[in-house]
């Protein structure tokens, strides 16, 4: 089975994230880049499926040159090879152009299964998997907490408000995973060393048949008009429980007319 796992480099959530004042895009230079947490679960699931069914796992990342760090991490976990879609023309792409460019790259790579995280920690739009399924004309098997492949049949458990749905489809398909699905492995020393020798192919937009006028900031379908740091929350009152903590909390609720 030919599995492509989409991995995004995001700013470390523990650092202060900012938008750039010039073009109002995420300032990716100002902060450390890490693998989007949920994508580690996507990589793990891809590796488990490969271990069970054979095949190959390819990492796909779209992002600036420094996103190679993220690719190495996924390779160190055990992925076989990587494709890095990287081109200055892609800077500032919104969800629509990102999904377009990634769909083009996926067509070039070829796949039986595409696996994504269900959401990135920076933009958090949670739309990419659905958009890819729409563009590629493949089944959308998103928000999976369990994935089972049997020949060309694939079944998932999709998380819902009320519990979960059992969903069935036929490969090729696009899957997104939630963090309940598995426990990602840590790269071993051997894995880290091996990753250095694994092939990473860098594609510019032309290599992936991406139309340059359909991506990047200029082609975006939406714009950030303005932004500002959120005003800090007014410092609250903190009391130590002296046996009356619950009563004091109730007093506060009453002062705010909740009770």
């Amino acid at each position: 089975m030919n599995i492509v796992v989409c991995v995004k480099q995001v700013p470390d959530t523990a650092t202060e994230r900012k938008l750039r004042s010039d073009d109002k895009t995420l300032d990716r230079d100002a902060v450390d880049g890490v693998v989007n947490e949920l994508d580690e679960y996507a990589v793990e699931e891809a590796l488990r499926l490969k271990e069970a069914h054979g095949g190959e796992v390819t990492v796909l990342t779209m992002g600036p040159a420094k996103a190679t760090e993220t690719i190495r991490k996924a390779l160190a976990m055990g992925a076989d090879k990587a494709v890095h879609l990287s081109d200055d023309a892609l800077h500032g792409s919104d969800a629509l152009s990102t999904s377009y460019a990634m769909a083009q790259a996926l067509k070039k790579i070829g796949f039986d299964l595409v696996i994504l995280g269900s959401e990135s920690t920076d933009a958090r739009t949670g739309v990419l998997a659905a958009m890819l399924a729409e563009r590629l004309g493949t089944p959308q098997l998103t928000l999976a907490r369990k994935v089972e492949v049997n020949g060309s049949a694939i079944a998932i458990e999709r998380i819902t408000d009320y519990g979960f749905d059992k969903v069935e489809a036929t490969l090729p398909a696009v899957v997104s995973v939630v963090e309940k699905i598995n426990e990602p492995r840590y790269p071993s020393f051997k894995g880290i060393m091996a990753a250095k020798k694994k092939p990473v192919e860098t594609l510019g937009i032309a290599d992936a048949s991406v139309d340059g006028s359909a991506v990047g900031l200029a082609a975006a379908y939406s714009e950030v008009a303005e932004f500002a740091a959120a005003p800090p929350r007014a410092a609250g009152t903190v009391v130590k429980d002296e046996g009356d903590g619950g009563v004091k909390a109730a007093d506060f609720l009453a002062s705010k007319k909740f009770i």
Binding site: R233, T237, V239, D241, G245
Partner: peptide, 18 residues
């Protein structure tokens, strides 16, 4: 906005009761 430093097993039932 309002915090209680304390054991939830004391504070939460007392709050409920109040």
């Amino acid at each position: 906005d309002f915090g209680v430093v304390g054991d939830l097993f004391q504070v939460v039932p007392q709050l409920t009761e109040e």
